[in-house]
Simulated scan of single mutants.
Amino acid sequence: MKEQYKISDPRVLKAVSHPLRVRLLGLLRSDGPATASELGRKVGESSGSTSYHLRELFKYGFIEEDDDRRDGRERRWRARHDYTSWDAGELSATAEGREAVRIMHLRQAEFVGRVMEEFDLGGWPREWADVAGTSDHIVSLPPAGVREFNDKAEALLRDLAAKYAGDPESRQVSAWHGAVPRSKEES
């Protein structure tokens, strides 16, 4: 089971939802420990800017110094958790919480868009081209059905990651699932 950071304070969710902080935390999770300068080069920002945002992520408990891989001149940072979660129902009890969840949902959608924009089928063999992409479905489900969908998707992903761990053809992939009710005007 992967370690998670469960957020219950809307101020903490809002702090991590900054676009650059989301990217920095994601890079530390996917690529491992790095310095502010290394991350700055990856995201096209100055080391001063990335240093500031890394300190904010540290302040809220998302990252820590990587003592195992100290760099004499610069701090190395690593993610403290494999992923972040929050209870949107709990947070939506206040206007501040609803706004924090809304902002984070937008950041998640931006991330999916950026990954798809950067993905080039031409750089991958046919086996990957055949399976890469997204799909969308419009179905009628009650909240219990959406929860079941989410739970089963999470369980299936964990099972498949364990099944194919160590497979020489395995690569890191970005996998998404989600569901939101359509507005009444769209129905």
Rank of each mutant, 00 (worst) to 15 (best):
K42P: 00
V43I: 13
G44V: 01
E45K: 15
E45D: 03
E45H: 09
S46H: 04
S46N: 07
S47Q: 15
S47M: 09
S47E: 15
G48A: 12
G48H: 06
G48E: 13
S49N: 14
S51M: 04
S51A: 14
Y52M: 13
R55S: 12
R55W: 04
F58N: 13
K59P: 01
K59Q: 10
K59E: 12
K59F: 09
Y60G: 01
Y60Q: 04
G61K: 03
F62G: 05
F62K: 04
F62L: 14
F62V: 12
E64R: 12
E65T: 09
E65K: 10
E65G: 14
E65S: 11
D66M: 08
D66R: 01
D67M: 09
R69Q: 13
R69F: 13
R70Y: 09
R70P: 08
D71P: 04
D71A: 13
D71M: 06
G72T: 12
R73A: 06
R73W: 07
E74V: 12
R75F: 12
R75D: 03
R76G: 02
W77R: 03
W77S: 06
R78I: 14
R78D: 08
A79I: 07
R80G: 06
R80H: 02
H81Q: 06
D82K: 10
Y83S: 08
Y83W: 12
T84H: 00
T84F: 06
S85R: 06
S85E: 11
S85T: 15
W86T: 00
D87I: 04
A88N: 01
A88K: 07
A88R: 10
G89A: 10
G89V: 08
E90P: 00
E90W: 01
E90D: 08
L91F: 02
S92F: 02
S92K: 01
S92A: 15
A93Y: 07
A93R: 14
A93S: 15
A93N: 12
T94L: 08
T94I: 06
A95F: 06
A95N: 10
E96K: 10
G97T: 09
G97S: 04
R98Q: 11
R98F: 07
R98V: 04
R98N: 06
R98Y: 05
E99G: 00
A100K: 07
V101E: 02
V101A: 07
R102Q: 10
R102F: 06
I103D: 02
I103M: 04
I103C: 00
I103E: 11
M104Q: 07
H105P: 00
L106W: 08
R107G: 02
Q108D: 02
A109V: 07
E110F: 05
E110Q: 13
E110S: 05
